[in-house]
Simulated scan of single mutants.
Amino acid sequence: MNGEAARLGGVAKIAVLRPNAVGDFVFVLPALHALKHAYPDAELVFLGKAWHADFLEGRPGPVDRVVVLPPIPGVGAPVDEPVDQQAVACFVERMRGEGFDIVLQMYGGGRYSNPFVMRMEARLAVGARADGAPPLHRWAAHVEPANRRLALLEIAALAGATLPWMQRELAVTPADREAAAQVLPAHHGDAAHGRLAEYGTTMPPPQGCDRPLVLLQPGSSDPRRCWPAERFVAVGDALARAGALVAVNGTAQEAGLVRRIVGGMRQPALDLAGKLGLGGLCGVLERAALVVSNDTGPLHLALAIGTPAVGLFWHTNLVDGAPLRPGLLRAAVSAQVRCSVCGADNRASRCPHQESFLHDISVDEVLGLAFAQLQSQPAVASSA
């Protein structure tokens, strides 16, 4: 760490650079809240992607405004991607004109992002620095693996920011709830309603008791992080037999996977593939008593909203993605490190195969965690 972590005086405008995907955005939420808590009168501007602007428009939270970055090599775009350098230069000039007091680099180790941040000429530039990356005014060492939420909070602390206690990191809007209502039955339970039957029984829920919603999330952008579909089928059936209303979510591109799971179940389940935007998904997650998910964006959205979850993780990914409220997550972790096709150790470098690395997580393990989570969480989830 370089520099004294003192709070800056006279701060009117702060920028945070993080043009990432959904899960990575969730990881930065505690740091954003800490910054807004430390500088409540400053405008907090998020430098991100178009989806950030769409998702955060009108959403209560620490971000006041989103500025969409143009393609910049190494900063939201591949290093070797041809870009319009004139457009990049014009963007930098526009950011200088904003007159940021503090710019925080929260995008990787800084090899490309730190020089980009320094071009904005803020009073204070803060961020992560990997070995060999250019320094900022204040910086923290970038190491992997590490809990991303805590690492980003460390960067915020370099700007004098501290985090207040929060039960929920991400706000759910009326529009989110309305979108969820379009795809869910009019009457179903949530975490505030009764408990499921114990694992291993086929007892239906008590008469007059609504069915708690359990959401299965079987997809991921990384096939190595995907638990086998037939095991989601077994988990869904067991939860439905115990009294849950089971829904299976996925993108439109994952519709085949979702249909395979819903069609393979002996118990009825809702197919939500391609039916939800990001806001609608937040609405569904808020109504869920439990989420069972691979390590992917919707899992981390659920945790940010305050919904209990069972997460399926490969090796050190749990270190990166662990929530600040540990009680919300029960994790099933695979210790498999070698590819089932070629035998290559994938900890330091990735082989070309796309096989799952979660085969050593059993159905019984996940069901045990799911029922334990459902039995222990109703009071917490209902007050989130």
Results as ranks from 00 to 15, higher is better:
227 W>N: 04
214 V>F: 08
132 G>M: 11
74 G>Y: 07
122 A>E: 00
329 L>A: 01
59 R>S: 03
157 A>C: 04
115 P>I: 00
199 Y>S: 12
299 L>F: 09
179 A>R: 11
338 R>W: 11
95 M>C: 13
275 K>D: 03
25 F>R: 02
47 L>W: 12
243 G>P: 10
302 A>I: 00
186 A>H: 05
285 L>K: 12
369 L>K: 10
297 G>Q: 04
297 G>T: 05
311 G>A: 06
43 E>L: 01
266 R>P: 02
333 V>S: 02
345 D>V: 01
129 R>C: 14
314 W>L: 10
228 P>V: 07
280 G>L: 11
357 F>S: 05
150 L>Q: 04
104 L>H: 14
350 R>N: 06
199 Y>T: 06
283 G>M: 11
121 E>L: 05
34 A>I: 00
380 V>L: 06
47 L>S: 13
362 S>H: 04
344 A>R: 08
23 G>S: 13
365 E>Q: 10
309 A>Y: 01
201 T>V: 10
51 W>S: 09
332 A>D: 05
265 M>N: 09
263 G>H: 02
86 Q>H: 07
252 A>Y: 08
263 G>L: 02
155 I>W: 04
119 R>K: 04
256 G>M: 08
79 V>H: 02
318 L>M: 01
79 V>E: 06
121 E>G: 03
60 P>N: 09
238 A>K: 12
67 V>G: 03
99 G>C: 07
44 L>F: 03
146 A>N: 12
340 S>M: 12
349 S>G: 10
211 R>W: 02
341 V>K: 08
7 R>W: 12
